[in-house]
Write a protein that binds this DNA or RNA. Structure first.
Length: 822
RNA sequence: GCCGAAGUGGCGGAAUUGGUAGACGCGCUGGACUCAAAAUCCAGUGGGGCUCACACCUCGUGCCGGUUCGAGUCCGGCCUUCGGUACCA
């Protein structure tokens, strides 16, 4: 290959490092731009196509912003704790610390070869005590506010990874987000962060951030706000009450039975002796089902009556109490009022068990006495509802709720689907939870001055269901800080999503000692202006980080409400339709291309493949195209060495004075500046690069007939536009034509000459009855009367309108002339 | 089931507010260079028709309908693929 990429890339990477062009002056904040990619998980797989696809184009965007005059901060780091390193240790015996450090070393080298302008002074990794002690500190702050707490609850357990998982880490099909094994339910005592306290704010904040609509919607659905009313039902011959939650108080008169979740504490108390046998049997049968089986919507609903009756507070009607697995203990009150006529699930259940169906909402166009074939869940007019008859549903919801509250039968309530974040993990390679369990004092938080609780090196990795930390006696056995008695440390570690919930603060000064992060810097630099990463984090990392950010704000550590002002998701690159993964054996190694073609060619190709947000299936078929583009670019610059020094530099040309080739080149140069800027600014890299290809095509055709001034003008601009997307190549090209220093050391960008954007000739489409019949060249901005004359003289058009009546003429300047004829 | 995104040549993909569909690139075909090949350069390239040829005609953006002088773009109804979600009362 005639383009010596390896020398050129080495040369400029060295130059950038020596000149420190990627080091950000953090004290200059008036034009600050914090551009961040999701940090990298240092697994044995090293850098793969997905990383390149995330980092390369984002770096191009950041470089573009830098050339435009922004003070860009672009850091990178390592999400270094986590399961895969530990699983690797179990398999190979290599300690997670050792494998992680080796991987980081390799990955750092690979990242440098990409040629991104990362500020290496800001590099961080989460697996060192200087970092993770602040996870522990954060935990203690949450604990103090009651937002970190321990409870026994049914939780998700991954039998393969031998740890519990948060709700967000279980996929729709009930499998583990990390390893794909089927997750089971266990009752365990675990640590939770009370993210639900922030549910409303997390929901509202979505309106103020510039995120993809899709992602905001996913978070909205995940938070799942629902507005309704809790209603108390008295139990016949009992002092107990059953509280149900409903979003449809207007259907309260239609209740024909009440359902409790099988695990509900009232079940044992309320079950009549003669029903006990059936109820116990039923509860057993429910327990034996997996979560997926149980919550499957396809499965037929099951349930049994418990023999007791509830009393409908609005009409005094006695209705039977059932238990059924479609009532979930974890949502609302765990009790449901069943209105079969107006709820699909209740309808299905009532039909199966022959329970009465009572219509209380009239669908318009139907009669009250008609027997419904299915539940009617929309709005209608209330019937069979006493004093509320005749009200519309929407009004009924309010009126019935008013009535309930006035008569102390219940209260309005907002429920969220969001559950608290389960953060303990029965694994080794993570942040130890800073709690000591004392037989007499209970759970005792580690004193802040005793942080970090260091993760010991020596443990047994595969203790079979127990946390590995229990195998290190020195670690686990401590004295209670309160009473001095023998006590034990909490053996669990934190979910690694805790690490990633605040790392963007730490980047500004990862070496800062004595505090989580340096607020003198973060106050000016956070929020992150541009955050780029995969959409798969929509309801995990991106939700957790927003929560922790708001918590830190409430403690006074940041002034901003949101961590990431603008978010962009790169698409996923698949291979033969499947996600790339080691287990599937379809991972494409970027080195195969970078070693052969250079990093600029590879970066250009990734950007040129298609829309960034879409990703797509991997194919190297078109890479020859970007390779040729790079070659042609390099060669055209080589033809004009030092042209910048030889020619008088001009910033603007007078178009009428130019010859026809110069006109073409001048126009194309400025049109490309305009187009490229617009496209790359919006992450449309594919069309940005296409515009550069068009540009060089015109240059190659016309440059020999241009003056030296025009050559210098066009080539300088071409090199500049090229710089964000092919940084090494562009630096070299600019140097060839006489540039003396790195463009990134001294940023330059050009504004287009607006006069050059206008073509003096345009092709106008002439249509007859909407069909294209001719295209006619016209001076730019010709008016209708002028165009009309030419159109009506055109023989092709005359052919179509001869002998016909012209009904209408439509003229759009510079675009079309449409004749409607009969 | 529900929510969201997407369906355009042989392929990846372009097309402001509705205004010449197929930019740019791959591939392919022909030509130049070469002993030959690769590389490179030049020309052509949506389907069909017609012509010696230039031209011209016609059909074409998942399917069916609609609005409009004009629809890839707007509206209604489907189909397919991919994400998210899963009885949330």
């Amino acid at each position: 290959m005639r383009y010596p990429f390896s020398e050129i890339e080495f040369k400029w990477q060295k130059n950038w490092e020596e000149q420190q062009v990627s080091k950000t002056n953090l004290t200059e904040t008036s034009n600050k731009l914090y551009c961040l990619v999701m940090f990298i998980y240092p697994s044995g797989a090293k850098l793969h196509i997905g990383h390149w696809y995330n980092y390369g184009p984002t770096d191009s965007w950041a470089r573009y912003k830098k050339l435009k005059g922004f003070n860009v901060f672009e850091p990178i780091g390592y999400d270094a704790f986590g399961l895969p390193a530990e699983n690797y240790a179990i398999k190979t015996g290599i300690h997670p610390y050792d494998s992680t450090m080796t991987n980081i070393k390799d990955i750092r080298e690979q990242l440098k070869q990409m040629g991104c302008m990362y500020d290496w002074n800001a590099e961080l990794m989460t697996c060192v005590p200087e970092y993770y002690r602040w996870n522990q500190w954060l935990f203690l702050q949450l604990y103090k506010k009651g937002l970190a707490y321990r409870k026994n609850a049914p939780v998700n357990w991954c039998p393969n990874d031998k740890t519990v998982l948060a709700n967000e880490q279980v996929q729709a099909d009930g499998t583990c987000e990390r390893c794909g094994s089927l997750v089971i339910q266990k009752n365990l005592t675990q640590w939770f962060f009370k993210i639900t306290d922030y549910a409303e704010e997390l929901l509202k904040g979505l309106d103020q951030i510039n995120w993809p609509e899709k992602t905001r919607l996913m978070q909205r659905n995940w938070i799942g706000k629902s507005i309704g009313t809790e209603v108390k039902f008295k139990v016949e011959n009992s002092s107990d009450e059953i509280t149900v939650f409903t979003t449809r108080p207007d259907t309260l008169f239609g209740v024909t039975y009440v359902v409790l979740a099988p695990e509900h504490p009232l079940v044992a108390k309320l079950t009549k002796p003669e029903f006990k046998n059936g109820v116990d049997k039923y509860i057993d049968s429910v327990k034996s089902l997996s979560e997926i089986e149980r919550t499957s919507t396809i499965k037929e609903k099951t349930g049994v009556p418990i023999g007791a009756n509830a009393i409908n507070p609005v009409n005094g009607q006695k209705v039977p109490i059932w238990i059924a697995d479609y009532a979930l203990l974890t949502y609302g009150t765990g009790c449901v009022m069943a209105v079969p006529a107006h709820d699909e699930r209740d309808f299905e259940f009532a039909t199966k068990f022959n329970l009465p169906i009572k219509k209380v909402i009239l669908k318009s166009g139907t009669k009250p006495e008609e027997i419904p074939a299915e539940a009617y869940t929309e709005d209608g007019i209330m019937i069979n509802s006493g004093e509320f008859n005749g009200l519309k549903s929407s009004a009924g919801i309010e009126k019935v709720s008013d009535y309930i509250e006035k008569n102390k039968l219940g209260t309005r309530k907002v429920n969220y689907r969001l559950r608290d974040w389960l953060i303990s993990r029965q694994r080794y390679w993570g942040t130890p939870i800073p709690i000591i369990h004392c037989p007499s004092c209970g759970e005792v938080p580690v004193d802040e001055k005793d942080l970090p609780v260091e993760l010991p090196y020596n443990v047994e990795f595969n203790p079979g269901g127990e946390s590995p930390l229990t195998t290190n006696k020195e670690f686990i056995n401590v004295k209670c800080p309160k009473c001095g008695a023998d006590a034990k440390r909490d053996p669990d570690t934190m979910d690694t999503f805790v690490d990633s919930s605040w790392y963007y603060f730490r980047y500004l000064n990862p070496k800062v000692d004595g505090k989580m992060f340096d607020t003198s810097l973060t106050d000016n630099w956070v929020p992150v202006d541009m955050y780029v990463g995969g959409a798969e984090h929509a309801t995990m990392h991106l939700l957790y980080a927003r929560f922790i950010h708001k918590f830190l704000r409430d403690l006074g550590y940041t002034k901003s409400d949101e961590p990431f002002s603008t978010l962009v998701h790169q698409g996923t690159i698949t291979n033969q339709g499947a996600k790339m993964s080691k287990s599937k054996g379809n991972v494409v190694n970027p080195n195969d291309f970078t070693l052969k073609l250079g990093s600029d060619v590879f970066r250009l190709y990734l950007m040129f493949m298609g829309p960034y947000e879409l990703g797509g299936d991997w194919s190297d078929k078109g890479i020859a195209g970007t390779e040729r583009f790079v070659l042609r670019t390099y060669e055209i610059f080589k033809r004009f060495p030092d042209i910048l020094l030889k020619a008088n530099s001009k910033e603007k040309f007078n178009i009428p004075e130019l010859n026809s080739e110069e006109k073409i080149v001048y126009r194309k140069t400025n049109q490309t500046i305009q187009k490229f800027d617009e496209e790359i600014n919006n992450f449309r890299f594919n069309t940005a690069i296409a515009s550069l290809m068009e540009f060089i095509n015109e240059l190659l055709k016309n440059i020999d007939k241009c003056s030296d001034e025009m050559k210098a003008y066009a080539l300088r601009r071409f090199g500049t536009l090229l710089a964000p997307v092919a940084p090494h190549l562009a630096e070299e090209c600019l140097e060839i034509i006489g540039s003396k220093e790195s463009i990134f050391g001294k940023p330059v960008w050009f504004a287009p000459d607006t006069e050059a954007l206008i073509e003096d000739k345009v092709n106008l489409a002439v249509q007859v009855n909407g069909k294209l019949r001719a295209t006619i060249g016209m001076p730019n901005n010709s008016d209708q009367s002028y165009v009309k004359e030419i159109v009506f003289a055109d023989e092709k058009i005359v052919k179509y309108i001869e002998g016909k009546t012209i009904v209408k003429e439509i003229f759009v300047k510079n675009k079309i002339y449409n004749l409607v004829v009969k």
